[in-house]
Design a protein around this nucleic acid. Structure first.
Length: 879
DNA sequence: CGATCCCGCCACATT
DNA sequence: AATGTGGCGGGATCG
């Protein structure tokens, strides 16, 4: 508009400036006019608008023109001149413009005016930070671009970053939906969790070392983190499940990069991240050598992202002085503890409410599955405390919205899950005392982790002790601990676990749901103890850790390599890796495969939906992709798998085990429900990850925060409602034996299939172990029914389960997968491809084991995506 | 001169 | 094929 005006004006008007010539030229250059197209015209200077408006217009309009002019001139500093005086002559039409115009020279002002950050501010100014849930604002890229006077390309830059934080979601081509910051805290929390998993160690490391790091950095990263090749998604969060498909393409690195970048801040103790470090970290490339050009490009992108984040008020530019000198860096000035919000709200809190409710519809999915109530129920059980769910639930309501919403929801869910997982882990940890693994996490933990605390109550976990492995154990045990604290001997025995990584399984949607619920709880609560935990973790890192676990943890931490002794061998290593890895999510491929076939008892309904949900959660947020693919198998340890195979394979044992298998399969299936009860589970429905189980593991994870998710168990009752997941593991919760058994059981299940028990498990990375210590049986009891039991986060296990069947899970996390990979083959058949989710966490480096992954990934990825899609579909229509 | 980062070519995806 | 997306990096500006 401005331009127009100007042009018109310009000519007419006196151009005040001296530089007439220039101005003329410009002014003359009508061409531009064209550029500013129509809209401007429309608007024609309006006038009267607010100054701001004018400015905007001007700016935008100007920019093009300006450019030319600028090119020519620029000399002067337009800004000053223009603003101040210029206007005079210019007429009314625009003061600003005039100035600008005339000044064109001046104006052009700098790039600053055209900066992405400023553009972003203008963009953000157009939408409410906290829109009413009801209203959904759709954003037309073309429209915005024209209004702001920029090319669409620039809008993409902004939107992509906003999308990574879930402030907007892509609805359709050229159209985005504005969500505002309602979910920002959730998203951040999720990212934080994911970040811890992925980068916890690193960051810690850095901090410590800071300097060196860089150099080393590369190496370490690799080591520690696996790499992710891709990083899929951190979050996953994205809502886009849909996108999943979309994702397929490139990866939208900007989005992923943005999330990763944010993760770094959230994980960083100092909350300051230098560009170079971030670039290094974000260069996923596995390769050590990153070429300079690549680094340079990465830095450029980071500037783009940083500009947007700065506009959002999340970071600010600072400089850090290092030995070498001063380096550009950014400091996180956004919320650090977001979680609280999120969590709290649930119940009452506003924030949460906001989110959930309307905006997203995210919730919905779960609900569906679960049926709302039940879900809740479960939830409750889960945590007992947490309100989180509520929030979620609320959300659910919106059916209408299509995917997007869902996606969002999913995202939210995902996030929640993550949170939950973490929490769990934390809890577990606390409970156990284990700390385990945390080590890595260090710090970060602190903040976050610490924060949460869950009530342990919920889970009584026990700590199982596990053992030896701590990690693993922890997991398992934990998980169930509640159930039993028993001993976990078994677990111990089983070595298999993986330490850290938790996986998530997604088997059924339900799971998700659960998780979600959990999450909240967890999140929020997370540990009160947290402090302890945190400390511990730190310590752990150090190696101190408490108990056994600690050791292990340390091991892990320390060296990945180090296996833990205890346990299983395989695990160990992997473990380490795992740890790095964040969580894995597992998805059951099978599900796809067989869908529904089984209906699990009942739960049929849910299934489809659930799946979606999961996907969403998992996938979406993270990366849809990841989920897909990975799923599979990966997790187990090879060994285990093998065993499993052997065992399972067809035979499951009778009873429960079979069940397990079945479940597993089923799980995979579309539905996901499982039931499993047979075994000892009695109560539960499922579990997810088996090994992991229980919380313990998760805890371990704790270190990792988020990720780790342990398994969850669901009480049968709960199950009933839902679908389930299954994991073999499950078992126990209830039974006393269980606990010990629990793990075992789980294992068993797996085992059955394979050895799962041992196997797998994923433990959270860090896992910890948890000792069985005390059992809390009682606790459980309480709830036995309620589904919730404790849920530990499930996930993990699932993998195992999955595997059994075939598929596998994938977790993105990697760890597991990696480990197992081997097995995959076997499994595969049925399974479909597992999906991996690596994405989630994947960080570039993360996975250590990429190998396994990769294998899978390649195929899977795509597959996965397809799968996801399917899921989506199904989910959508639940039938 | 190094830090920033605008700009827009161009490839790939989707329609 | 057209159009939407978005990676990417040259090279201009800033400080």
């Amino acid at each position: 508009e401005n331009i127009f005006d100007r042009s018109r004006m310009a000519p007419k008007t006196p151009i005040k400036s001296e530089p007439v010539d220039l101005s003329k030229q410009k002014g003359c250059t009508p061409e531009r006019n064209p550029i500013t197209p129509v809209k401007l015209v429309d608007r024609p200077q309006p006038d009267p608008w607010t100054p701001t408006a004018n400015l905007k217009m001007l700016v935008s309009a100007a920019s093009p023109d300006m450019r030319d002019r600028e090119k020519k001139k620029e000399l002067f500093r337009p800004i000053e001149n223009s603003e101040q005086s210029d206007t005079p002559d210019s007429l009314q039409y625009d003061m600003v413009d005039d100035s600008t115009v005339d000044e064109f020279e001046k104006q052009r002002p700098s790039r600053k005016q055209k900066s992405l950050g400023l553009l972003c501010q203008k963009f953000l100014a157009r939408y409410p930070s906290y829109p009413l849930s009801t209203e959904k604002t759709t954003i037309s890229l073309d429209e915005v671009a024209s209004i702001l006077g920029v090319e669409r390309r620039r809008i993409y830059d902004i939107v992509n970053v906003l999308e990574s934080l879930h402030l907007v979601s892509r609805v359709a081509k050229n159209q985005y939906c504005w969500h505002g910051r309602h979910n920002l805290s959730q998203t951040l929390k999720m990212l934080q969790e994911a970040g811890e998993l992925q980068y916890g160690e690193l960051m810690t490391f850095f901090h410590q070392k800071e300097q060196d790091l860089e150099c080393k950095f590369g190496e370490r990263k690799k080591e520690t983190i696996p790499n992710s090749q891709d990083g899929p998604l951190l979050d996953f969060s994205e809502p886009d499940c849909t996108s999943a498909s979309a994702n397929s393409r490139k990866d939208k690195s900007l989005r992923i990069m943005s999330q990763k970048f944010v993760m770094l801040f959230l994980v960083s103790k100092t909350k300051i991240v230098t560009l170079d470090i971030a670039a290094k970290i974000l260069i996923e490339e596995t390769q050590d050598t990153v070429d300079y050009s690549k680094f340079k490009t990465k830095v450029r992108r980071l500037y783009d992202i940083a500009n947007v984040l700065t506009s959002l008020g999340l970071i600010k530019k600072v400089h850090v002085t290092e030995e070498r000198g001063r380096k550009p860096a950014f400091k996180w000035i956004g919320p650090v503890e977001f979680p609280g919000k999120t969590d709290e709200p649930r119940g009452h809190s506003p924030t949460s409410d906001l989110l959930p409710g309307t905006q997203r519809g995210a919730c919905a999915p779960y609900q569906i599955c679960a049926t709302g109530k039940q879900k809740f129920t479960r939830h409750s059980s889960f945590n007992t405390a947490q309100p989180c769910e509520e929030t979620i639930r609320k959300v659910s309501s919106e059916p209408s919205s299509p995917r997007q919403e869902r996606q969002d929801e999913y995202c939210s869910k995902m996030i929640n899950l993550a949170a939950v997982c973490r929490q769990k882990i934390e809890e577990d940890t606390r409970n156990s005392g284990i700390t385990s693994h945390l080590s890595l996490l260090p710090v970060s933990g602190d903040s976050d982790f610490c924060v949460n605390s869950l009530p342990q109550a919920v889970f009584p976990v026990v700590q199982a002790d596990v053992p030896s492995l701590s990690l693993s154990n922890g997991i398992s045990s934990q998980a169930l601990h509640r159930s039993t604290p028993a001993t976990s001997k078994t677990e111990n025995e089983k070595p298999a676990l993986l330490p850290n990584q938790p996986f998530l399984c997604f088997p059924s949607s339900s799971l998700f749901m659960l998780c979600g619920g959990l999450q909240e709880n967890n999140l929020r609560e997370t540990l009160p103890t947290a402090g302890d935990v945190g400390n511990r973790s730190a310590e752990a890192q150090a190696a101190v850790p408490p108990a056994t676990c600690q050791k292990r943890s340390s091991h892990k931490c320390a060296s990945p390599a180090a296996p833990v002794d205890d346990e299983e061998p395989a695990t160990k290593r992997q473990t380490m890796e795992q740890s790095d890895v964040p969580l894995s999510l597992v998805i059951p491929k099978k599900a796809f495969e067989s869908p529904k076939a089984e209906p699990a008892p009942g739960s049929g309904c849910a299934s489809p939906i659930h799946l979606e949900a999961f996907h969403l959660d998992l996938a979406s947020p993270i990366a849809p992709e990841a989920a897909d693919k990975e799923s599979t198998k990966p997790s187990y340890s090879q060994e285990q798998e093998k065993q499993s195979h052997n065992k399972d394979p067809d035979e499951p044992s009778p009873g429960k085990e079979h069940i397990s298998k079945e479940n597993a399969k089923q799980s995979f299936l579309p539905q996901y429900l499982y039931v499993q009860p047979t075994a000892g589970l009695s109560g539960f429905n499922f579990l997810f990850s088996a090994n992991q189980a229980p919380g313990a593991i998760s805890l371990a994870a704790s270190p990792l925060p988020s990720l780790s998710i342990p398994c969850v168990m669901v009480p049968s009752a709960a199950l009933a409602s839902f679908p389930l997941v299954c994991s073999s593991a499950i078992t126990s919760p209830i039974s006393p034996a269980s606990d010990g058994s629990f793990s075992t059981a789980t294992s068993m299940n797996y085992s059955m299939s394979g050895l799962a028990s041992t196997t797998p498990v994923f433990v959270g990375t860090t896992a910890v172990v948890t000792p069985k210590v005390s059992p809390l049986p009682s606790v459980d009891p309480q709830q036995p029914a309620h589904p919730a039991l404790h849920l530990s986060p499930v996930l993990t296990r699932s993998c195992g389960a999955v595997k059994l069947d075939s598929p596998v899970c994938m977790g993105h996390p990697v760890t597991l997968l990696k480990l197992q990979q081997p097995s995959s083959a076997p499994l595969t058949p049925k399974s479909i491809r597992p999906a991996r989710h690596e994405a989630f966490f994947k960080t570039p480096g993360t996975l250590g084991d990429p190998v396994a992954w990769k294998k899978n990934e390649g195929n899977q990825t795509r597959i996965a995506s397809s799968v996801q899609r399917r899921l989506e579909i199904s989910s959508t229509s639940p039938d």
